[in-house]
Simulated scan of single mutants.
Amino acid sequence: MIFRALDLPGAFEILPERARDERGAFFRSFCEAEFAAAGVAFRPVQMSISENPRRHTLRGMHWQAPPAEERKLIRCIRGAVLDVALDLRAGSATRLRHVAVTLSAEAGNAIFIPAGCAHGFLTLTDDAALEYMMDVPFAPGLGRGARWDDPAFGIAWRAPPAVISERDATWPDFDG
């Protein structure tokens, strides 16, 4: 696994190191020891799949409030997405800044998002699916969100959403 630091402290794009032979390819999607060697203590306790039939489906921006702040490892396992992490950490030098990474099943890359950051994505293909690994179980009462196009964030999505939930479309402007 190759860890490429992103412009938010603690956030990484993780690139696979594929072993190839006549059968195809093999790569690790997660290894606790390799994360530790990169200085990231991460032990997933929950995994989820997000299936998105239509191109330009937008989900986000979501996070969990304390004490259930979660760190996430997200990989696109079918299709491609523009994946965005947004720093909401109090006192962070990069607060309200974001990073965006194109994740695709073909590339096999992933994004690691530290606690205190919001997450969202826009599908770039029909039939896109993402696998989430989280280190804290989902806590519905602590789920939070902000509008995907809040001007405070300045996220340059590649296209307007063709599919978005009512909740994601109507989150209020960020107040923090």
Rank of each mutant, 00 (worst) to 15 (best):
M1R: 03
A5L: 05
A5E: 14
L8M: 08
L8E: 07
L8F: 11
E13K: 06
I14Q: 01
L15E: 13
E17N: 13
A19I: 13
R20M: 11
G24N: 05
A25Y: 15
F26I: 10
F26N: 08
F27H: 13
F30S: 01
F30L: 14
C31L: 10
A37T: 10
A37S: 14
F42K: 09
F42G: 07
F42D: 06
P44W: 00
S48I: 04
E51T: 15
E51N: 14
N52E: 08
H56R: 15
L58G: 09
R59N: 04
G60I: 00
G60Q: 02
H62Y: 06
W63N: 02
A65Y: 02
P67M: 02
K72A: 07
L73K: 05
L73G: 08
R75M: 11
D87S: 05
L88A: 00
A90P: 13
A100C: 05
A100L: 04
T102H: 12
T102A: 12
L103E: 02
A107D: 10
A115Q: 05
A118W: 07
A118D: 08
H119L: 04
L122Y: 06
T123D: 01
T123L: 01
T123I: 03
A128K: 03
A129M: 13
E131M: 15
Y132T: 07
M133P: 06
M134P: 01
D135Y: 06
D135V: 08
A139L: 08
P140N: 00
P140F: 00
P140K: 00
A146M: 11
D149L: 06
D150N: 05
D150S: 06
A152N: 10
A152S: 13
A152M: 11
A152G: 12
G154Q: 12
G154V: 07
A156R: 15
P161T: 00
V163H: 07
V163L: 11
I164Y: 10
E166D: 15
E166G: 10
R167G: 07
R167C: 05
R167M: 06
P172Q: 09
F174C: 11
